[in-house]
């Protein structure tokens, strides 16, 4: 009885993950069928089996792992910068209301602007280097971090602020002991969003300026018209993002054990 209950519980634990994987598999199967029956042109979308088959080639000949590492490092660098400058920016804007009133709309507008298009400017400033890529990823991802930080701090429940006041906290204690921890869940959402933006822009700029990690590889393979290889490389980009978010979720859980 209890063993059965345990079994059921463990199935329930894995059910979401299993369903997720199952959905992906089903999608591949359907694509395979569509391509094999000729309903989808195989010169536009190669059959998934061919993509999987080219994984080995992409790994060995195209050194996909070192590319992968390069993209990952760019993302992490941008991520660290984002966390430092984005959170600090949000804090400063929240602290000086005039600044917030003046800039919040701009920052929000920046969030939806296609910053990738500014890449020639960055090429001029930073040259054809990893810094161009990192800075673009960083800049594109800054708005959500700033906005979510502001939202988190100003959304702190008033009674918690009053608790701090009733204990005679200094302004800096008030910030570090109450406002900041209260805002952390929101800040994390901001950083997560920011990293998504950063990854998209980093791979995009790599592709555009034909430099660096996975983006450049995709560019190369596409130019060689190696479609299966291109899609295989795209799979690796997805892998980076999945890894990223798994790690982030772990950190978040660790920092915020219970709501």
């Amino acid at each position: 009885m209890s063993a059965q209950a345990q079994k059921r519980a463990s199935f329930a634990d894995y059910a979401p993950a299993a369903t997720g994987v199952g959905t992906v598999l089903a999608f591949f199967l359907i694509m395979e069928l569509l391509v094999q029956t000729g309903m989808v042109n195989r010169f536009i979308v190669p059959p998934p089996s061919e993509i999987i088959g080219s994984f080995g080639r992409v790994i060995v000949e195209e050194h996909v792992f070192s590319r992968f590492l390069q993209t990952l490092i760019e993302c992490l660098t941008a991520g660290v910068m984002l966390t430092v400058f984005g959170v600090a920016g949000g804090v400063v804007m929240n602290r000086y209301k005039l600044l917030q009133q003046a800039c919040e709309t701009w920052v929000a507008a920046m969030a939806s602007a296609p910053i990738v298009l500014m890449y020639p400017l960055f090429l001029v400033i930073f040259g054809r280097s990893a810094w161009t890529i990192i800075m673009m990823g960083f800049l594109a991802a800054l708005p959500p971090v700033i906005l979510k930080t502001i939202e988190g701090i100003s959304g702190t429940r008033k009674v918690l602020v009053n608790v701090g006041r009733s204990f005679n906290l200094t302004p800096s204690q008030q910030f570090w002991k109450i406002l900041f921890p209260a805002a952390l869940p929101n800040i994390f959402v901001g950083i997560r969003l920011g990293l998504i933006f950063a990854l998209i822009n980093i791979v995009g700029v790599e592709f555009l300026i034909n430099y660096g990690g996975l983006g450049q590889l995709i560019n190369d393979l596409a130019e060689r018209y190696d479609l299966a290889g291109t899609y295989a490389a795209i799979c690796f980009v997805i892998l980076v993002s999945v890894l990223f978010f798994m790690v982030l979720e772990k950190i978040e859980r660790w920092l915020r054990p219970v709501d």
């Binding site: 429940r157 009674v159 918690l160 009053n162 608790v163 006041r165 009733s166 204990f167 005679n168 002991k177 109450i178 921890p181 209260a182 952390l184 915020r256 219970v258 709501d259």
Partner: peptide, 28 residues
């Protein structure tokens, strides 16, 4: 302003959700 001789307990829920019971109570 708030006087250090007065300790307040509020009508609304006012524990710090990011601290354990011990850390909440040890706050002051």
């Amino acid at each position: 302003g708030p006087h250090q001789s007065i300790g307040m307990v509020f009508q609304e829920e006012s524990t710090f959700p990011w601290r354990t019971v011990t850390d909440n109570v040890a706050f002051p």
